[in-house]
Amino acid sequence: MSIRVVVADDQELVRSGFSMILDAQPDIEVVAEAGQGAEALQAVRLHGPDVALLDIRMPVMDGLEAARRICEGSGCRVVMLTTFDLDEYVYEALYAGASGFLLKDVRRDDLVHAVRVVAAGDSLLAPSVTRRLVADIIRRRGSGPPPGEQRSAEPHARLAGLTARERETLTLLARGLSNAEIAGEFVVSEHTVKTHVSNVLSKLGLRDRVQAVICAYETGLVVAGEG
């Protein structure tokens, strides 16, 4: 079954170029193109794609607002595209529910890989973006507990429904480990790890690993600089 994609960008050459690259893949089908955010939202509602590639800067409705509405109203996963590697765009896109963030000068193979990764239910979050995301979360949360104050041994209320192994899984997710690396840590199969990850996301109402990272730091399960 093909991965169904909507491509939205106000620059026709960029839009058509990405569509040609993706349509050339045997497992990917571009079902619609859009020149602005409202059209992208309509295309998602009409075609029910698996992935939407959204330019951040578009007229009428920008990509961030389109991403919020798409993520709230459908199961379509979003990858944001921009020419600007600016932190506020990264954070706003991720908080809006996007599962990935790419610059428009992305290589052909990396673009295709991004669509496949996100369609498979994973997220596209480079370590450098993770570090900046963590710093932003810490800034938003404030300075945290006073120096020397111990964190409570009790789990944050939001994490109370997780088993001990699921909390361990969330911790390792937040530190950037892949399923294979987590499997190595636990000495179990990748299939078992996938089950743990799925349980974590389901119990916490999270879309993907990006939101898992945010949750782990916001609840204090993981603290910057540890591990």
Rank of each mutant, 00 (worst) to 15 (best):
V90T: 01
G37C: 02
V79Y: 00
V90H: 05
K203V: 08
L133E: 03
A212I: 06
D122E: 15
E39M: 11
R116K: 13
T219Y: 14
I56P: 04
L172R: 07
A52N: 11
V223C: 06
L172S: 07
L54M: 13
G63P: 02
A183G: 06
D50L: 02
Q11W: 11
G97S: 07
A153D: 09
G73Q: 01
N199D: 10
P127C: 08
P127I: 13
I138R: 12
M58R: 02
G176E: 00
H191Q: 13
Q42H: 12
V115Y: 04
Q211N: 09
A114Q: 12
L111V: 14
E88R: 14
A180K: 12
R45L: 04
G121K: 14
S178D: 00
V118F: 09
D105Y: 07
L22T: 11
L221D: 01
V118A: 07
A160C: 12
L162E: 10
F101T: 00
S74E: 04
T83N: 08
M1N: 13
L170V: 06
Q11I: 11
V30T: 05
V112A: 02
S143P: 00
L170Q: 12
A157S: 13
N199L: 07
S198K: 06
G100P: 06
A174L: 09
G35D: 13
G121T: 13
A96T: 10
D50S: 05
D85M: 12
C71I: 09
A43D: 11
R68N: 03
R116T: 14
S202I: 00
I138W: 00
V5W: 09
T192D: 04
H113Q: 14
F18I: 04
R77G: 01
D27A: 14
A135C: 01
T130R: 10
S152C: 07
G225M: 07
V129K: 11
A24G: 02
L102T: 06
G148N: 04
L170P: 03
A52I: 10
I70L: 06
E72F: 02
Q150P: 00
A126W: 13
R77E: 03
V118D: 01
D23Y: 06
F186V: 12
A66Q: 11
H156C: 10
V5D: 02
V14K: 03
D62K: 03
V129T: 03
R45H: 08
E181S: 13
A43G: 09
F101R: 01
P147C: 14
D50Y: 01
A157Q: 04
A224R: 07
D136N: 10
E149G: 02
T171W: 02
E149K: 14
G97R: 05
K104V: 08
G227A: 15
T171G: 15
A164S: 12
E65A: 15
R77A: 13
